[in-house]
């Protein structure tokens, strides 16, 4: 795929984001979890704003709170203090195999999600059937799927709803090279104008697809205008 072209469209998207009122705003967000020995603070006083069309990477060590951040943005979890407001539609966190019910078949899971979001199930089943290449396995319970099949289904289902912002948690590392290319095309080309928040351990990946990045380190969120800056900091202080 042509990264240069992607980046230039991304740049215009970022410029548009300045005027477009659709955004996600995190204000003074802190998150704590109760543990056996008192509260563990994941991060404190996070401020983050993401406009429509912007692509932001999230970096950090394992356990730094990257996924927690995405879950706060998606509304799956509530902040201990502070607020998260969304004026665009935000996807659920696209991750490997999350978001469905194991005892239901693939088809029933598609139906469920179509119903929740008010979409026509039959049309969506056709799309997922075609994209996931799971064929008749879609009529089997999801718990019998292999990890790869589950990830393919998860990705295909995620593409069913037309969100304005996608939250992506390492999801692109799915299946073989050919399927990965297909996912990249579906997400970054066909939906290239959307906002995206991406967690990845792969520096190349974040460099090619994000305009800026934040690094979560020591309960703080550090902002960088370029992914280069973010990686520089990351290597200097963390890895």
């Amino acid at each position: 795929m042509n990264v240069a072209v992607l980046n230039s469209t991304a740049a215009t998207a970022a410029a548009n984001a300045q005027v477009d009122p659709r955004r996600i705003v995190m204000r003074n967000v802190s998150k704590e979890y109760p543990t056996q020995h008192g509260n563990a603070t994941i991060f404190e006083d996070v401020n983050l704003e993401i406009g429509y069309g912007e692509r932001v990477g999230i970096l950090g060590r394992n356990g730094a709170g990257k996924s927690t951040m995405i879950r706060l943005i998606s509304g799956n979890e509530l902040p201990t203090r502070g607020s998260v407001t969304r004026s665009m539609t935000v996807s659920w966190p696209l991750a490997l195999g999350g978001g469905f019910q194991g005892s239901l078949t693939g088809i029933d899971n598609i139906r469920f999600i179509s119903r929740i979001y008010g979409l026509d199930p039959n049309e969506k089943i056709a799309f997922v059937e075609d994209f996931s290449e799971l064929g008749s396995y879609l009529r089997e319970p999801v718990k019998n799927y292999s990890n790869g099949m589950r990830a393919r289904l998860a990705f295909a289902i995620s593409m069913v709803v037309d969100f304005e912002c996608f939250l992506i948690d390492e999801v692109i590392a799915v299946g073989d090279q050919r399927f990965r290319d297909k996912c990249t095309e579906e997400l970054f080309e066909k939906r290239g104008d959307r906002a995206m928040i991406i967690i990845s351990h792969d520096p190349e990946f974040v460099r090619s697809f994000c305009q800026r990045a934040v690094v979560i380190h020591d309960r703080k969120v550090h902002h960088f205008d370029t992914t280069e800056g973010a990686y520089h900091f990351y290597h200097e202080h963390i890895a």
Binding site: S74, N76, P93, G98, G99, F100, F112, Y117
Partner: peptide, 12 residues
Amino acid sequence: PPNLSLMFHRNV
């Protein structure tokens, strides 16, 4: 608990 995975969807 059996429905936790469905609560991935904010509206649930």
